[in-house]
Simulated assay, not measured.
Amino acid sequence: MDDAQPGLAGFLGTDRPRVRWFHAASDLRDFMITTFRVSPERLARHLPAGYVPEVVELAGGPAALVSAVAFRDESFHFRGLPRVAITCGQVNYRAYVRRDGVRGAWFLGTAFDHPTVVLPRRLWGMPWRRERIDLTATWDDGRASWALRTDEATCRASEAAAVPAGLDGFATERDWQALLTHPTVGWYRRGRAGRVGTYSIWHPPMAARHFVAAEARFPFLERLGLVQPGQEPHSLLGQELLPFDIHTPPRRVRGPVIATP
Rank of each mutant, 00 (worst) to 15 (best):
R195K: 08
P250K: 00
R190V: 02
R223D: 08
P249G: 06
P249L: 10
P204S: 09
I246S: 04
A207W: 08
H210D: 13
L226M: 10
P250Y: 03
L237Q: 05
G197C: 12
W187I: 06
E232R: 11
F220S: 02
Y188I: 03
A214F: 10
G186I: 05
V227Q: 00
G197K: 02
D245S: 02
P205L: 13
V196N: 04
Q239F: 04
D245Y: 00
I246Q: 11
H203Q: 03
A208W: 08
A193Q: 09
P243Q: 00
G186W: 02
P204A: 07
F211Q: 13
M206L: 15
E222K: 09
V196P: 03
G186R: 02
E232Y: 07
R190W: 01
A207E: 14
L242C: 04
F244Q: 00
T198F: 04
Q231G: 03
P249V: 10
H234C: 07
P229Q: 04
Q231H: 06
H247Q: 12
M206T: 15
S235N: 01
T198K: 09
V227G: 07
Y188W: 11
L237N: 07
L226W: 08
F220E: 14
H203E: 10
P233Q: 04
D245A: 02
P249R: 10
G197F: 03
R217D: 09
W187Q: 04
R223Q: 13
A207C: 15
E222D: 11
I246M: 05
L226N: 05
L242Y: 01
F220Q: 11
R252V: 14
P229L: 06
A216R: 08
P219Y: 12
G186Q: 06
I246V: 13
G230P: 02
F244N: 02
P243C: 01
F218H: 14
P250Q: 02
R195W: 02
S200M: 06
R251I: 12
W187S: 06
R209T: 13
W202M: 12
Q239W: 05
G230C: 02
A207F: 07
R217A: 15
A207V: 11
S235I: 00
F244A: 01
L236K: 08
L226K: 08
G225V: 13
